[in-house]
């Protein structure tokens, strides 16, 4: 589905990413974790085509994404960013409708099935009662759901999430990730997400990539990556690892030093 092939990125002298290689299969959810400044966000920007790698390439269905048209990329990938949507006086409906952009030709107007798609997704994400409200009247959690709805109507094959839960409380954090999870099960969506919260990452990812200082430190299943000695080395802290009593994924307990 998606191949990252020996991607390296330098910002002038600073080496932010070094020889990153991995593959993501269709329908899986890959979590990218790592300490601040490890290159997680840069990697996601390169995957989405926003940044050009110094060397190496990102391929989507065997095609280098830098050679694709912007609308073609948008049909393959949607991105949910940390900052989410700005506080603009634009209605929720109009915002979500913008997600249909890659499917509409430049001379066309929005068609009936574009409108239907938007209505469906508004219902699915539980925000149809907000559709006439302006973005600047919404809370952070509501805005992030609008952003998900916008990504959904874009009908991508891959969803990139850049710390989408940063500014949210735990209820809203789970809400967003549940929506993504549900969407993934329904459509076979491929998800690549950068998450700071290791516990959330372990719960929702099939596979984890641990970045440290621009290189892949570990890559594998949750149990393989969430290990005491690895995390101690990378995060310079002493975590306790326990098994989640219900869904049996490794979870981390922090102990003060």
């Amino acid at each position: 589905m998606l191949t990252v092939d020996s991607v390296t990125k330098h910002f002038s002298e600073k080496k932010v990413l070094q020889d990153i290689t991995f593959q993501v299969d269709k329908g899986t959810c890959v979590g990218i974790i790592g300490p601040n400044g490890s290159g997680k966000s840069t990697l996601l920007k390169i995957i989405s085509g926003l940044l050009t790698p110094t060397s190496g390439e990102v391929k989507c269905n065997h095609k280098n994404i830098l050679h694709l048209k912007q609308k073609t990329i948008a049909k393959k990938m949607a991105v949910l960013s940390q900052d989410g949507l700005p506080s603009s006086p634009i209605s929720v409906f109009d915002t979500v409708l913008m997600g249909r952009y890659p499917h509409i030709k430049w001379y066309q107007r929005e068609r009936a099935h574009d409108i239907e798609k938007v209505q469906d997704v508004l219902n699915l994400t539980g925000i149809s009662h907000l559709q006439n409200q302006l973005l600047d009247t919404l809370s952070g959690g509501e805005k992030q759901r609008v952003a998900i709805a916008k990504a959904m109507v874009q009908e991508p094959q891959i969803l990139l999430l850049d710390e989408p839960t940063t500014y949210l409380d735990i209820g809203h954090q789970l809400n967003i990730l549940e929506l993504v999870n549900h969407w993934q099960k329904e459509t076979g969506l491929t998800v690549i997400m950068v998450l700071h919260d290791l516990n959330l990452a372990a719960q929702y990812s099939d596979e984890l990539i641990l970045l440290n200082q621009g290189v892949i430190e570990e890559i594998g299943t949750n149990e393989e990556v969430i290990q005491k000695d690895i995390l101690e080395r990378v995060y310079e802290t002493v975590p306790e690892i326990v098994m989640h009593p219900k869904n049996h994924v490794p979870q981390i307990l922090l102990t003060s030093r």
Binding site: Q70, A74, Q154
Partner: peptide, 16 residues
């Protein structure tokens, strides 16, 4: 209209 949501958001929705 899409640029009003920010350049990155516009870019990710397919605007060159």
């Amino acid at each position: 209209n899409m640029l009003a949501l920010g350049e990155e958001a516009a870019y990710h929705s397919g605007v060159s």
